[in-house]
Simulated assay, not measured.
Amino acid sequence: MSSAGSVFVDEKWLEVVLSLKEAATETLPDFSYVASGAYLENVPTENEGSLDRREDEPRPSEDDNDETSRSRNLYFAIGDAKCRAAVQLLLIQAVMEVYNMYRAQLSSQNTVILFEALHAVATHAHKINSDNDLRSKLQELGSMTQMQDPPLLRLENESYQLCLTILQNIFLERSSDEGSIEVVESHLIDLCKEVLEVYLSTARPAQLSSGMQPLGHWLIPVGSSKRRELAARAPLVVSTLQAISGLGDSPFEKNLGQFFPLLAGLISCEHGSGEVQVALSDMFSTWVGPLVLQSC
């Protein structure tokens, strides 16, 4: 690939990016067995005591076989999901290397296909990471999974970051026809909104997420684990705010109405670090403030 890529014609590059997209789709981590809870009747969790296990020992052999089967299925499901996540991290690295080496040879259409492949990885990882019931099950299993919480946060962040980089480069270079640039701009705007919405959803207190917070009551601050998650997500949000600022005068002004509620949410929400507030302050002083004053 490193020697042949420079002589590929556009059709060959299309085959390459479609293959990468297919690989991304076929290796999405599958946590459905854990999410279903099919193992819960027989597999002890980390919190169960040895006494409970001793009481289970006299079970009939048929029950023992069922328990062994469920345990085996659970280990296989977790191992398979972790392997797929590792493969996808390697796939992201491969896409990044291909893109960096042959960016000039890739048409905007083929680059958008790369974006679509990475975006599928990011959205699937976010779906897993936002499944609180699944996360609770994985935490209950403890050392058996040896996974962080959220389980696919690194995969989500890295794939979103590369999505952002790819779209931003196409938009800023503007080497494509006007129609392609409009498509890329639309993708970029939607992606920036999506990243900010993900962050705000994470930062939102549980009582607001459930819609149960009565008026006039204090909000309960997010816990330490949530703050760590927000801190891990902060660099991506900073990059997103910088990408929004880099849209230029006309696109920024045209889309400010879509972004403003999200920016206001970032002002009022909790954060895990100060990075987001600094980037937000820069954006308001450089872009939003002058536009507001200009309209007065």
Rank of each mutant, 00 (worst) to 15 (best):
D10N: 12
E11V: 05
L14R: 09
V16D: 09
E22C: 00
A23G: 07
P29T: 11
S36Y: 01
N42L: 05
P44A: 02
E46S: 12
G49F: 01
S50Q: 09
E55S: 13
D56M: 14
P58S: 10
S61W: 13
E62S: 12
D63L: 10
D64G: 03
D64P: 00
Y75E: 14
A77C: 10
C83I: 01
R84I: 03
A86Q: 05
A86K: 14
Q88E: 12
L90H: 04
L90D: 07
A94P: 02
V95W: 13
M96D: 14
E97L: 09
N100T: 08
S108W: 04
F115P: 01
L118H: 12
V121I: 12
H124A: 14
H126T: 03
K127Y: 08
I128A: 14
N129H: 07
N132I: 01
S136V: 08
S136E: 13
Q139S: 12
L141E: 06
S143K: 10
Q148C: 11
L152K: 05
L153S: 13
E156Y: 07
L164G: 00
Q168R: 14
N169F: 08
I170D: 08
F171Q: 15
F171T: 12
S180I: 05
S180G: 02
E182R: 15
E185T: 07
L188N: 04
L191T: 03
V198L: 09
Y199K: 02
A206F: 04
S209P: 00
G211W: 10
P214L: 05
P221K: 07
P221G: 08
K226R: 13
A234D: 13
P235T: 01
V237N: 07
I244H: 04
L247I: 00
D249C: 00
S250R: 15
G257Y: 11
L262E: 01
G265H: 04
G265L: 02
I267Q: 13
E275T: 00
L280S: 10
T286F: 05
L291P: 00
V292H: 05
C296R: 05
